[in-house]
């Protein structure tokens, strides 16, 4: 398969970026999107040009490093995948593909397609944990947890922190990311004692870092590679309200 790629190039955080056009040919339909970029980079190296920088690591959809905006969609045209799990068979031979970094003020571009997502770490740092130390905890089977609750907690905990929700949102809101963590703990007895502080601190940090508000558009849910449901945002809102009001 042959493709024309229009890729965002930007030397560093302060440089002015631009789209560059490249051609790749003879790409197998079984090739993943990132492998296709590897092939492009090899071409660039062969020509003494600078390869395209992009974040990637596990290449099996779980580390959350990849952060490509492909043809206007986070992680591209397939559903429930990260860019590393997107295969070229999802495109048509001869397609022009536009590749951009995540676009959101709290995720500044570092270089080319690489953005700084450390704001997510700051949000977790503000309260995304149960405040217990190593050791001195009760036996694991001391507190039974209804299976359905454990499963809902797991649905939320599946978040990989990639930032597609923020990139998809017209307000660059991080509500789905924050909700995934708050909702995981809301479904479990562990950490209930600090539930109010947790939600207040995490939401305050999210606001402070410049993420926008949620207007229930649902773009985050549609683009989330782990299909994290909007209902977790509802649960976050309930946790937040009860922390504020009660």
């Amino acid at each position: 398969m042959d493709f024309t790629l229009k890729i965002w190039r930007q030397e560093n955080a302060s440089a002015k970026g631009r789209f560059e056009t490249y051609k790749v040919t003879g790409i197998s339909s079984d090739c993943s999107f990132l492998e296709m970029l590897d092939i492009l980079n090899q071409q660039l190296i062969d020509k003494f040009e600078i390869p395209v920088c992009f974040d990637h690591d596990c290449r099996e959809g779980i580390c959350g490093a990849c952060s490509l905006y492909i043809n206007g969609r986070p992680h591209g045209p397939d559903s429930a995948v990260t860019a590393c799990q997107l295969h070229m068979r999802k495109f048509k031979d001869g397609d022009t593909i536009i590749v951009e970094p995540w676009r959101a003020r709290p995720f500044p571009v570092i270089k080319d397609l690489v953005v700084d997502r450390s704001s997510f770490d700051r949000i977790i740092e503000a309260g995304g944990y149960v405040s217990i130390n190593t050791g001195g905890v009760p036996d694991a089977n001391t507190i039974p947890i209804p299976r359905a609750n454990a499963e809902t907690a797991m649905d939320a905990a599946a978040c990989i922190g990639c930032g597609a929700c923020v990139a998809a949102c017209k307000n660059a809101s991080a509500m789905l990311f924050v909700a995934a963590k708050v909702s995981q703990f809301a479904m479990l007895p562990q950490g209930r004692v600090e539930a109010k502080e947790r939600v207040m601190r995490m939401v305050a940090k999210m606001d402070e870092l410049g993420f926008g508000n949620c207007t229930n558009t649902g773009a985050c849910e549609a683009e989330c590679p782990k299909q994290i449901s909007l209902s977790h945002i509802a649960r976050l809102n309930r946790e937040y309200l009860s922390a504020r009001v009660l």
Binding site: Y129, V130, V137, R147, A150, M154, L188, Q190
Partner: peptide
């Protein structure tokens, strides 16, 4: 065994039986 205790206390959502135990 302590590892499992620790992780459960942290809120790791391990798979559970219908009775609520691990």
């Amino acid at each position: 065994g302590s590892i499992i205790d620790q992780c459960v206390a942290q809120g790791v959502p391990f798979a559970r039986e219908y009775g609520g135990l691990l």
